[in-house]
Design a protein around this nucleic acid. Sequence first.
DNA 1: AGTATTTATTTAGCTAGGTAAATAATTTTA
DNA 2: TAAAATTATTTACCTAGCTAAATAAATACT
Lengths: 132, 132
Amino acid sequence: MNPIFHALFQKNRYLTNCLNEVLKQHHLYSSQWTILYCLHKNGPMTLTQIWKYLNVEAPSITRAITRLEALGWVQRLDGEDKREKIVTLSTQAEERLPAITATIRAFEEEMVGSLTAEEQEQFLKLLEKMKG
Amino acid sequence: MNPIFHALFQKNRYLTNCLNEVLKQHHLYSSQWTILYCLHKNGPMTLTQIWKYLNVEAPSITRAITRLEALGWVQRLDGEDKREKIVTLSTQAEERLPAITATIRAFEEEMVGSLTAEEQEQFLKLLEKMKG
DNA sequence: AGTATTTATTTAGCTAGGTAAATAATTTTA
DNA sequence: TAAAATTATTTACCTAGCTAAATAAATACT
């Protein structure tokens, strides 16, 4: 296998495992956090808005939201268009998000901190230059 | 979320989806192919050798090998040490691998070809420089 | 030799992604 | 306006990663 692919897949696995490890203290998985952060940043969103924003398929989001709702992090409200459900953060989630965000920032700093700002920019540029 | 992480996770998803798409013609999933390639390159291996080489956990490999065996791509043979199973490619797999490898090479070329050799090297260096 | 520890594999059960198809509500069109 | 097409969400089921714990064989230690 092309070493670039190999390295990219490995790093991806490694980083998500680390992220999950770090999020354990908040009783969250990485992709749950991704959704909470998305809602925090954008306010209430429909399921479709969420999965289009995060670039995954609808069923992944349905499942994740069902779990997040059961755990009390979000609510599903009926939209004006009766087909759509609007997802909002619970007040509990709003309260906890600052602490979680701090954890994440520290983690990201640790992981990416070994690269200079210039290298980070270069890395992003190369990632985007890869076809897709 | 840090844009580097975001971009890396997205690209990872995108590439594995593309890879699966391309491998459909050979009736394989990307991680099945990863294992076949590993065996092709290294010859017969125990399960432990495989998962250590690929940097994943043992149960993932057990499951994948079970499936590959059911589909006729590999065999599990008892080792001299009766605890270990030695995995070998079937002759059918050996016959088909060249065509599959060609497909993969073309795909990789298409994906990574937008980067110059220098950029590819740089990308790898940056990936490795990220903590982990 | 007999017990304790380690090692290799497997099983069970979780999140997280995917596709295909079902359902219900809305829009378009004839 | 009734039928057809589209859209939002869900359900069912697949691969693919993970951890924790079970099992069986080999090794180490009295």
